[in-house]
């Protein structure tokens, strides 16, 4: 079975380590904040100028001056700090954020990522995604493995305009966890009940399948 949104978020959260500063993109990455492992303390960075993002506010806590990068009202966690957008991206560009998680349309075997623009369709903009992929060393891309029509999103070469070049080393899809090394995808884990054959069939780029590919485990 392909992973649900919640399972994707849970698997992302398994990568969180104690003391990590983390930037979570909009969508599934944001959900990962609900599954922070016990005993692990992380601080969430919101690129509009907040380090130490807390949960959504209660009705009586709503403050229009306190939002996240998705423009949702939020709260601040203990030990939070506030700063300008320039300082925020200095943190990101300067490589100070330990982990970045974001979505994509396509990833290829050379670590290229396309996530912001489909020619002919409405262009809304890249927001902070280009800065995040260029600045971070440790990035996890979350996406579906293939389109609804069964077209692979893990490619030999991205077909859409790039968000970043050669910057992705790890991809989590609804079917598998893969690393990108030396121009190849390496299959590290598979979703429970998903066969290696199915993943091979839906991966267009070169794929290395180790002898043992463990299934993901969820608590």
């Amino acid at each position: 079975m392909a992973l649900t949104r919640e399972q994707l978020a849970q698997r992302v959260a398994q990568e969180f380590q104690d003391g990590y500063y983390i930037n979570l993109g909009i969508g599934i990455p944001t959900l990962a904040a609900n599954y922070i492992p016990e005993g692990v303390e992380v601080m969430l960075q919101s690129e509009n100028g907040l380090l130490g993002m807390g949960p959504f506010p209660r009705e009586d806590e709503v403050d229009p001056d306190l939002i996240n990068a998705g423009k949702q009202t939020v709260t601040m966690a203990r030990g939070a700090s506030l700063f300008s957008s320039a300082d925020s991206f200095a943190m990101i560009r300067g490589g100070h954020v330990d982990l970045t998680v974001l979505g994509a349309f396509e990833v290829d075997c050379r670590g290229n990522i396309a996530s912001y623009m489909i020619p002919g369709k409405l262009i809304k903009g890249m927001g902070g995604a280009m800065d995040l992929v260029a600045g971070a060393d440790n990035i996890i891309v979350t996406m579906t493995h293939a389109s609804k029509h069964g077209e692979s999103k893990l490619l030999q070469e991205c077909t859409l305009p790039l968000t970043g070049k050669g910057c992705i080393k790890r991809v989590l899809t609804d079917l598998a966890l893969l690393d990108i090394e030396d121009g190849k995808f390496i299959l590290r884990e598979r979703a429970p009940g998903v066969s290696v054959e199915e993943i091979v069939k839906l991966t267009a780029g070169p794929l290395v399948v180790p002898d043992v590919v463990p299934q993901m485990t969820f608590v």
Binding site: S84, A86, M130, A134, G164
Partner: peptide, 29 residues
Amino acid sequence: PQGTLAEKMRAGGAGIPAFYTATGYGTPV
């Protein structure tokens, strides 16, 4: 890109005419 935009403004106010950034390399930007 958002960080480039912030830095363009910062540089504009700080007398820096241009700067190098990895953001956008190899992309339409």
